[in-house]
Amino acid sequence: MPERLSRLRLSRQDRWGLLLLPYALGIFVLVIVPAVFSFGLAFFHYDALSPPVWAGTLNFVLAYTDELFLLSVRHSLALILLPVPLRLFGAFFVARLLQRNGRFLNWFRAAVYLPTIVPGAAFALAWLWILNPLYGPLNLLLRALGFAPPAWLIDPTWARPALALMALWQIGEGFIVCLAALYDMPPDLEDAARIDGANGRATLRHIILPLLAPILLLLTFRDVILTFQETFTQIYLTTQGGPYYATYTMPLFIYEQGFDLQAFGVASAAMWVMYAITGLIVVALVVIARQWHIGTTEETFVL
């Protein structure tokens, strides 16, 4: 059997294709097919208990005129602004810091990656404890240092920063990608720059960052989409969108419409609006990147 397989002489590309096939199948069955169905559903009134009734574009209008929907869009966008750049720079600088080899650095690298593989629910519950206003370790520490700490998830002004703070710890994937890119970079470049008299800052600015720009751009896309669409578990388990809608985001709106109010049509319409907004953000990022000439030299890689 193995003999016959090796005799097939798969090209490098075919082998990649074969490796990615399960994921492609998964995305098709679990994401694309339901998404197409829900696009159809967005034009119907459907409560899952009685047959769907044609609604035209009413669901899109309903989503658009709903105050809560507009609020959720604003909050979702706000939740991108702070965490995404911080997560990205965090991933990059930690990777740069832990780039060298060393016995202890291995442990540090594992420690940076670890929070990322904690299941979402466990991660959220752990932070619920960490951010407990009276008995949480964070506020105990801050109080011991003489600060008057906020109530975090309970306080409307601090709830969003608290969520951003939580997001900062799950940077493992970006970290690994940056680390791989840094290892991939020929060390001669840095050596040459040093010989030419460039200090650390100049090397970073003129050599490393431009070389890594395409990868950082890719990570930005990924993080924007992730933060925009995938923060549901954490918000649902920590604040349920509160206090008084301070952390009410689009995924939460979609969930409530669908599973609480049984308005699956409105939920589907809102989901497609979310897709559209995600697309717009990515297009905007591409335009900015083109303007800054980021990634244009490695077009095959990203753009």
Partner: peptide, 8 residues
């Protein structure tokens, strides 16, 4: 209060 209730 709200904080006390949320904490315990």
């Amino acid at each position: 209060g709200r904080e006390e209730e949320a904490s315990q």
